[in-house]
């Protein structure tokens, strides 16, 4: 059962993601700030991370950079899920090592699809 780490400081958004993924069979773990996101990424070994950018203590961009520097987490795909969705922020998210970008407000169905696609392409890569 794939594990997904949801990082957002808004409890409402975490609840929404949980509701959107209900019945999909993923295991969900949550973090509400940058540092606990890094800790959870190491302790919970998630298969995918949904990451907000505007996080307390450590920004999502910095969290992503650190994940990509750490051999233990470098392969974990990161999808940014953020309200900062202008061109410059998309570029910054790419540069930080994000695999995808979902702008808030988002469609729960589209979110589920993008998560499934990302996990599938990672599985294909791993099986080669």
């Amino acid at each position: 059962m794939p594990t997904i780490l949801v990082v957002d400081d808004e409890p409402t958004i975490r609840l929404l993601v949980r509701a959107a993924l209900e019945g999909t069979g993923y295991r969900l773990v949550e973090a509400s700030d940058g540092f606990s996101a890094l800790q959870m990424a190491r302790s919970e070994h998630p298969d995918l991370i949904l990451l907000d950018i505007a996080l307390p203590r450590l920004s999502g961009l910095e969290v992503c950079r650190r994940l990509k520097e750490d051999p233990a987490t470098v392969a974990t795909p990161v999808l940014f899920l953020t309200g900062f969705a202008q061109q410059a922020e998309r570029r910054a998210a790419d540069a930080a090592g994000g695999q995808g970008f979902i702008a808030k407000p988002f469609s729960p169905a589209a979110l589920v699809r993008q998560i499934a696609d990302t996990l599938r392409s990672r599985a294909t890569l791993a099986s080669r």
């Binding site: 808004e10 409402t12 929404l16 309200g83 407000p105 988002f106 469609s107 729960p108």
Partner: peptide, 8 residues
């Protein structure tokens, strides 16, 4: 952010 809750 609040719009996400409404739309979602």
């Amino acid at each position: 952010t609040p719009l996400s809750a409404l739309q979602g």
